Simulated scan of single mutants.
Amino acid sequence: MDLPSRLEALITPSLEAMGYELVRVQMQGNQRPTLQVMADRVDGAAMSIEDCTEISRALSALLDVEDPIAGAYTLEVSSPGLDRPLTRPKDFVRWAGHEVKLETAQPIEGRKRFRGRLDGLDAEGRVVLTLDEGGAVALPLAEVRGAKLVLTDDLIRAAIKDQEGLRTDD
């Protein structure tokens, strides 16, 4: 099992117990590597600095005990933000209708980079896009190397609407 997969398996149960969901775990850099952990609140509320601090403290203790990373590294905990990476099948369903940039591991239809409106997943589990230049494409999810939402006015409006829907007037 590769390091990111081992870290994901180690981190996920603690995050879930705290009411969070892992979005992505990634190691970056060589000299002084950074372990980047992106998380969301399970209740759908916006992530706060306090949430990131709580996660950082818990994961620091867990990683100190388990010691899965050789040598020194920096732990960075963050929310995915509005222009979030899409990493799980449910992300491609949840954010359908919004603009995305996507890159595949291997060329598909002669290219690796795609941009357009996300139409979700089809019956075979392929990511369906309506391309900016016209036409549509269905990309195997297993071939998607990276995907993220593009910050648009529509995305901002949707985020505001989501947050307003979570507020309660007591």
Rank of each mutant, 00 (worst) to 15 (best):
A61V: 07
L63A: 02
L59N: 08
L75Y: 00
S78K: 00
E76N: 08
D67I: 10
V77L: 07
P80N: 09
T53L: 15
S79W: 01
L63F: 02
A58Y: 12
A61S: 08
L62I: 07
C52A: 09
A70G: 11
R57P: 06
L75P: 02
L62Y: 06
I69R: 02
S56H: 12
D51R: 08
A72G: 13
G71M: 12
S48G: 10
A58H: 14
T74M: 13
T53W: 15
S48M: 13
V77H: 02
I55F: 14
P80I: 00
T74E: 13
A58F: 11
T53E: 15
G71L: 13
S48W: 05
S56G: 11
S48D: 13
A70F: 12
P68A: 05
R57K: 10
Y73G: 05
L75T: 00
Y73K: 05
S79N: 10
C52V: 03
D51E: 14
S60Q: 08
R57N: 09
E66W: 04
P68D: 04
A72P: 08
D51K: 06
D64Q: 03
E54P: 03
A61P: 02
D64K: 01
C52T: 07
C52Q: 04
I69W: 01
L59A: 10
S78N: 07
S60Y: 03
R57Q: 10
D64P: 02
